[in-house]
Design a protein around this nucleic acid. Structure first.
Length: 296
DNA sequence: AATAACACCAACCGCCAAAAC
DNA sequence: AGTTTTGGCGGTTGGTGTTAT
């Protein structure tokens, strides 16, 4: 006899979330806080499984998420961390507090992989071109080789529109004077949520900046400086050092740092990650290479 | 103008370790 | 101690928008 199931598997709704569903979910989390996902579908009446609710919250609804428009520095961090850690997107995302693992994974698969492939092809002699031994390209990669990267593609679907979510949250925040901070009031997530409470009613532009987490940059950097790549259970990703160590034996250095709460010196990797000029410059170098007419 | 091909990304799927019973 | 579910993760897919023909 184990635990009871989180929700009835029959009649579970799938597919894109509607604004109404988002409102219900956000309102519930506002009241009860994130976590205990098994109770969310039953308590809210949402015809979604707990897993879907958690995913929707962590990837799109929680405050502080920055979407799209990856900076050169972020690109550089992703490229280097991917080379170092492999496809450990959650671990990589822990170094980019504003980004979700899903977002990073998508960005890698749709943009960076192609960028690096072209860069590598340009760097290698013709006989080596196309050799992907140093990059972990998925077999599902479309092989068309079209070079027009649609960096500013806009989507009209609801789910991908931060503006729509901002508007959605606007009404919610107005009716909710104070965020529920009953768990981990010093966490990034709850701090940003509190910031939202104070500022959310000042127009869409400000909403965008709030949701983009820019105002929490210093907090995020402080978190990094302690090598504590762990977000609190406010829906943020939790990188459990012990578990990650079991899951990924290649990750020893980072995990060692994460296990130490007493302000250890920055590792070489983290020093590099925090050095904006380093990674950004390297990505810009790749970009410049990509723009060379001779490559195409 | 029609449509085929491509690109993007939100969301699902399956697996695993930990937690709950 | 054994069973079952939860929460988290990485891989993959399907829907939709954009571009090319």
């Amino acid at each position: 006899m184990g635990r009871p199931p989180c929700c009835d598997k029959v009649g579970i709704k799938k597919g894109p979330w509607t604004p109404e569903e988002d409102i219900i979910l956000v309102s519930y989390i506002q009241e009860h806080g994130p976590g205990n996902w098994r109770s969310v579908p039953t308590n809210t009446g949402l015809m979604r499984c707990s897993k879907s609710c958690r995913l929707r919250w962590t990837n799109y609804l929680r405050p502080g998420i920055k979407r799209g428009n990856f900076t050169p520095h972020e690109e550089g961090m992703i490229i280097h961390l991917q080379a170092l850690l492999g496809n450990k997107w959650a671990a990589i995302a822990s170094y980019l507090p504003q980004r979700t693992d899903n977002d990073i994974k998508n960005y890698w698969n749709t943009h960076l992989k192609k960028k690096l492939r072209k860069f590598q092809s340009a760097m290698e002699p013709p006989s080596m071109a196309g050799d992907e031994k140093s990059l972990d390209f998925a077999e599902s990669e479309t092989g068309a080789g079209s070079s027009n990267l649609k960096l500013n593609q806009t989507s009209s679907s609801y789910a991908s529109s931060t503006e729509n979510i901002s508007r959605l949250l606007q009404g919610w925040m107005r009716s909710s004077p104070k965020i529920n901070n009953n768990n981990n009031s010093d966490s990034i997530g709850s701090c940003s949520a509190a910031a939202n409470c104070d500022l959310i009613s000042h127009g869409d532009d400000q909403l965008e900046s709030i949701l983009s987490f820019e105002n929490m940059k210093d907090v995020a950097l402080m978190e990094k400086s302690t090598s504590k790549a762990t977000f609190q259970d406010s829906g943020e990703k939790i990188i459990n050092p012990e578990r990650k160590q079991k899951a990924d034996n290649n990750n020893n250095n980072i995990d060692d740092n994460n296990n130490n709460n007493s302000n250890p010196p920055l590792s070489f990797l983290e020093k590099w990650l925090l050095d904006e000029s380093s990674s950004a410059a390297q990505v810009e170098e790749i970009d410049q290479m990509m723009e060379l007419p001779s490559i195409f």
